[in-house]
Amino acid sequence: MGRRPIQLGAVTLFSTQLVALVVGLVLITAFFVAFRFTDWGIAMRAQAENREAAALMGIRSSRVTATAWLVAGALAAVAVMFIVTQDFSGTGLSRSTHAIAFAAFPAAIIGGLDSTAGAVVGGVIVGLTQALTEVYVSIPFAKVAVFLVMLVVLVVRPAGLFGTRELSRV
């Protein structure tokens, strides 16, 4: 992939970033569809809700768990393919590249762990917070700002924006 920037009105993009955007949108759409309509997605959601009940309904717990990890790994691999390009990280892989994985935590938590839509919204909030803080405050503060936003969200909504709060029966 070349380093030639693409001009879209006032926005300058590297082609890699454009590809990343498209791939991201395609994957997100695919997951929405899969979670909602395929047997696999339903099994996964059922297990997240109530593992025992799901098992009693004939869902193979071990298989669902295994595929969940498989998909998570594959998605991380896709993300890494973009991260290692010069257009994203500047330097390629380093010993602390995996630190970026911790940016995924706030995204998932802000949205609420049991919500796919939440993950997308969380991701957007994390991205915007980081980018805006880098521009208007300082680059070192950006990562802290992301976590502070997350803390505020959690104090107000302890299970994230779209997460369902577990009710304990006594």
Binding site: F105, I109, K143, V144, F147, L148, M150, L151, L154
Partner: peptide, 15 residues
Amino acid sequence: YLGVASLALVFLGFY
């Protein structure tokens, strides 16, 4: 949720 929230402190300390 608590675990990740507490993680925030590590990043705060780093900064």
